[in-house]
C-alpha cells in the first residue's frame, strides 16, 4: 500500500523531481573515513559539468578545509557511485557517465586515515 489515505488512489506530489531544479540536478558526495565532515554534502549542479570540475572545484571547495585533502593521490583514490565501484572520466559530463539526479558519490582514500588516525 503506497499510502494509507482517505482518498482512493491517492498520490503525492514529488517535491524533489528533477524539473524543479531549474536545469540543475542534485548530487551528493561523502568522503569515507573523514568524519570531520559530519554528513555528506549536497549540491545542485549542471548535468553537463565535467567530473574534474566537480572534484577540483565543487568538492575541493567544501572538503578542502581538511588537512588531508591536499594529500590525496588521485591515481589511487576509489569511488563508489550509488553503491557500485566507479571509475570517473574526468573530462566527461556528470550525466553522461551515469551520475544522475540524486546520485550519491563516495570517495575512498584508504591510505589516509584521518586526523590522529581516527577516521576524522
Amino acid at each position: 500500500m503506497p499510502v494509507r489515505a482517505i482518498t482512493p488512489d491517492y498520490t503525492g506530489e514529488i517535491k524533489d523531481k528533477l524539473e524543479n531544479f531549474h536545469g540543475n540536478q542534485l548530487v551528493f558526495a561523502g568522503w569515507d573515513g573523514h568524519l570531520m565532515f559530519p554528513a555528506p554534502f549536497a549540491w545542485p549542479l549542471p548535468p553537463a559539468m565535467p567530473f574534474v570540475a566537480l572534484r577540483d572545484q565543487v568538492m575541493a571547495g567544501s572538503f578542502g578545509i581538511h588537512p588531508e585533502w591536499a594529500e590525496i593521490n588521485w591515481d589511487r583514490a576509489q569511488w563508489l557511485l550509488d553503491g557500485q565501484p566507479f571509475v570517473p572520466d574526468l573530462q566527461k559530463g556528470l550525466a553522461e557517465q551515469g551520475i544522475g539526479h540524486k546520485s550519491l558519490l563516495r570517495l575512498q582514500t584508504p591510505e589516509l586515515k584521518g586526523f590522529m588516525g581516527a577516521g576524522v
Partner: peptide
C-alpha cells in the same frame, strides 16, 4: 575512540584561526 579526536581537530583549527564552518549544505 570516535569523538574526542574530532574535538582535538576543532581545537587545533580554532587555534590557527580556522574555526570549522562547513560551506555546503548536508545531504538529508
Amino acid at each position: 575512540k570516535y569523538y574526542r579526536p574530532r574535538w582535538e581537530l576543532a581545537k587545533k583549527l580554532e587555534s590557527e584561526g580556522k574555526r570549522i564552518y562547513n560551506n555546503a549544505l548536508p545531504q538529508l
